Simulated assay, not measured.
Amino acid sequence: MKITLVMAGDEEGGLEKHVVELAHGLQQHDHNVTVIAHEKYHDRLHTNFIAVDLSKSRRNPFVLYQLYKAIKGSSADIVHVHGNKAAAMVASVMSFVQVHTVATLHSRKKNTKMFKNYEAVITVSPNAAEVLDHPNKVVILNGIDLPKALPSIAKHQPPVVLTIGRLVPVKGFDILIEAWKEISGAELWIVGDGFEQEKLQSLIASHQLQNQIKLLGHRTDIYQLLQQASLFVMSSHYEGCPYTMVEALLCKVPMISTAVGAMTMVLPEKYLCPPNDVQALHRLIEQTLQNLPEVQQDFESVFQFAEQHLVLDGMIDNTVKVYQSLLSA
């Protein structure tokens, strides 16, 4: 098939990672792939690429005309758009292009009206699917290539609880730091950068937790850090299907999380707590750290699920089935 992927904006997050990996996976499965996106992503995409700056206003007539020309010129069988903004922009020009259309909703959103005219909509979590009123919607969890085998190393002592994400409010790291008060015998490592760094550092200092909580900044050795961790934690207010969850489970690191996004589908209920609840998160962290051998046993079936369903080939196969259903219809 000739498949054109469209993403708007110029950020760095799960959506952008998803599009890059989907493009390469589709190409490895012998499909002809074109990506329409901001120029900044050109170097990391080894596919056909058309640069259009969709970070500008979704109503900008010049940008919309460029988008129309790019889609028309790609001669696609399927146009697959990612995220609300891209869905809105492509929807405004799709009547001028006779092509099958698919959209992916990457997280739970209040406004999903821009998806109504797409032939099929993929969501990356059951939570996102709940709010979407569409007759042809399907949940496909994110997947990655299995991590390469790394030299075996001992778990860090004292035990490390690891979390990874942009330092922004939605990740709930302020709630996590508050919940860490009176947690003993373990360290919390927070990996990532963002505009909340100073605020979080001040919060750590105000609770005198500098010896227990470390802000590690941006890191490129994620798998090595996961090897050292005894537990992964996610404190987000909302999520889709975060790649950090996928990476942790494929590295066989047990995980606790707020009950958001794909975690409600993948993790055992006893390892979930309500979002934005300091006391509930504190209790979950404390109880889990006290029973790490039992936790590891509880997660054996979760790790097996991850190896079957949270890998790139599975994600590609399920996405291609959606494309084929439209073409055969």
Score class of each variant (00 low, 15 high):
42 H>E: 11
211 N>Y: 03
138 V>W: 00
237 H>C: 05
273 C>K: 03
197 Q>G: 03
281 L>Q: 02
108 R>A: 14
203 L>H: 05
318 N>Y: 00
126 P>M: 10
211 N>R: 12
182 E>W: 00
122 I>N: 07
70 A>I: 01
50 I>C: 08
11 E>G: 13
192 G>Y: 08
64 L>H: 02
147 P>R: 02
15 L>R: 12
221 D>N: 15
74 S>Q: 06
84 N>S: 14
24 H>N: 11
86 A>S: 12
162 L>Y: 03
116 K>H: 11
147 P>Q: 05
47 T>C: 14
201 Q>P: 00
142 N>Y: 02
284 L>T: 04
217 G>V: 11
78 I>P: 01
82 H>G: 10
255 M>R: 08
63 V>F: 00
36 I>M: 09
268 P>K: 12
115 F>M: 09
13 G>Q: 10
88 A>N: 08
191 V>W: 05
295 V>E: 02
245 M>Y: 04
292 L>P: 08
240 G>A: 11
56 K>R: 14
20 V>F: 04
326 L>Y: 03
55 S>L: 06
104 T>A: 11
141 L>A: 12
319 T>Q: 06
47 T>D: 07
220 T>K: 13
145 D>P: 00
76 A>I: 03
22 L>W: 01
149 A>E: 14
170 V>P: 00
97 V>A: 08
320 V>P: 00
